[in-house]
Design a protein around this nucleic acid. Sequence first.
DNA 1: GATGAATGAGCATTCATTCAT
DNA 2: AATGAATGAATGCTCATTCAT
Lengths: 197, 197, 197, 197
Amino acid sequence: MRSQTRTIERHERILEAALDVFTRSGFQDAVVDDIADAASTSKGGLYFHFPGKDALFLAVLDRTAMLLRSRLELALAMEAEPLARLETTLRALLQTFGAHRKAARLFLIDTPGAGPRFHRRMMTLRAEFTGLIVAELENAVAAGVIAPVDCRVAAQVWFGGIHEIVSQWALAEDPEDLLARLPALRALLLRSVGTAA
Amino acid sequence: MRSQTRTIERHERILEAALDVFTRSGFQDAVVDDIADAASTSKGGLYFHFPGKDALFLAVLDRTAMLLRSRLELALAMEAEPLARLETTLRALLQTFGAHRKAARLFLIDTPGAGPRFHRRMMTLRAEFTGLIVAELENAVAAGVIAPVDCRVAAQVWFGGIHEIVSQWALAEDPEDLLARLPALRALLLRSVGTAA
Amino acid sequence: MRSQTRTIERHERILEAALDVFTRSGFQDAVVDDIADAASTSKGGLYFHFPGKDALFLAVLDRTAMLLRSRLELALAMEAEPLARLETTLRALLQTFGAHRKAARLFLIDTPGAGPRFHRRMMTLRAEFTGLIVAELENAVAAGVIAPVDCRVAAQVWFGGIHEIVSQWALAEDPEDLLARLPALRALLLRSVGTAA
Amino acid sequence: MRSQTRTIERHERILEAALDVFTRSGFQDAVVDDIADAASTSKGGLYFHFPGKDALFLAVLDRTAMLLRSRLELALAMEAEPLARLETTLRALLQTFGAHRKAARLFLIDTPGAGPRFHRRMMTLRAEFTGLIVAELENAVAAGVIAPVDCRVAAQVWFGGIHEIVSQWALAEDPEDLLARLPALRALLLRSVGTAA
DNA sequence: GATGAATGAGCATTCATTCAT
DNA sequence: AATGAATGAATGCTCATTCAT
């Protein structure tokens, strides 16, 4: 009941604090004590909720992936047109990352650097999102609205392009609006699969 | 001198060992002792050649960038045709990374994860290579062989696409030949800037 | 009352669980959580019944001593003959330890290792049991059935001999019956005080 | 050369300090920092010489066993007579422990309490010393100077008796001379194997 | 009486860096 | 130039104990 709620709140607060500290310092330089402080709890309290620093990082990572996933699903729910779905996927990714700079840093920058023992999970998550793009591309190919490209490679290029643009923005000292890059990026990517924007 | 030679050899051996250990364990988990061992020297010897772990990492990074740079220059030296130069740039990058998997890991995966204090240098290096692509793209636009695209964004997409493909390959357990991806990638990227391959 | 009963049961269950965990892990490595789990209660519940880990250990120790004491009293109740009482003491100790391996471990092995702050209590308990043996020996000396030995030292040798034999058995991976050692031990100890077995 | 010597000295100083701290606080309550301080070195220095607290404890234990062993060998070197060897064994043990109270505490009291993961080594060491006694007893039996007893059990009784007497002395607040117990103990133990002292 | 979330002092261990030899 | 012993600050994690519910 009440305690349920409080436990979940605490859980959530720790994840929030961890996202903050991890993206500020990187995984290795992030200190568990700092995360606990940022979550207004004690180190012991943190370890009650998460078995260790690694697990905490993975939990934050999964939570970030979940956020991204749900945003994408929400945005795509209203689109049926293959080309529109492709454009929506692109816009939704930029919008979501643009609204969650820390999530972007965690997902795109900190996770590779967290060390080899996180690579597998990172690969899995990337494969998941690349897979979404692959599906949309195949969809569009089947509908004949784009050229019959190698969807796997195309999706990697799309993801890579987004990755690079978002990364630069996430690391910039004084970042402008990420969505400002959308038109040029959309033109490039759509043209890359044989459609004039 | 003889000692000159020996010093340079030692210097080189340490860099080689560092590349090895850094890419195997990531920057943070790499232990200076291990690097010294791998270089068949002592910790003290290592510290004679490099002021510290950070500087050593940057030295390896610069050495890797130098390798990449020289390979690109070599490959481009023989090309005059704007479109050919673009294709060559692409092929040379895949070839070089394909022949130096550890360099690829270091450059694309380990450096972001090395921590925020390396981000600036990483940004600089990436800007350099993106800049090369920008130059080639502007060259091609000026020659009228590709569409008048936003070369900055286009270069980021090119770099991002390459980054993603090489990263996946560099992290794969059982990687096939990286150059196998070249045709599809070239088709995508050239089409993205308005040229049919 | 019903609750009375339940409380006592819980109390008992905790002591039983504590004996188990203490003898499995040693005092220091035994974790209060594990004891609570083994007793099918919560940590808070355990702390309702016992003020702390130290007190719990002492309670288990006292309970074990009590067991030993009562078994000895029971066995000796039927014996009047000094020599028979000595033999009975010996047999009763081996029988009791043999039937309660965990008690043996706790009493003879874990308690010394529980740390200096338990030494006093340990000494007291050992003195008590050595005292029982002293009494029987003096009894026998007075009756003239054994030689006029230094009963204090003799009791220590008796206790030490039993201690060693029981310890080895308690720590053995695959222990045989402890009583198998009785004849040889009895012969030795009786002869040590001047009586042919 | 010089550094060899200094390294060995440091090594030795750490072992000495560890013996001190372990016997003062018990294994678990002994703090590595304290040992380092007591050895006038740093924690890091300690860890350069020993891989961990466990290993350090075992090293101290082995060193103590070595001391005991060499004292016994020395004392027995001059004795040929089976009975004299038995008596010498007994006296040497009491003398050595009497002169090294900390060694006695470590060997007889702290080691059992150091936790189950040390039990095996402890058993091995005890078996070694019991084995020495067994050999002497068998020797004496063969020579016909003591009764044909079960030498294994007899040795355990001897070791146990010594153990008990030394333990009491090692734990006493104000211990008298351990050798004062020798005559009574010798009488008891010799009589236990069928010889009048 | 019981629960289990929370606390926080305590601790073993790591490791980049220094420096006497 | 090179060695490796020594340093000590830093940090992840444990766990006995408390207490609001």
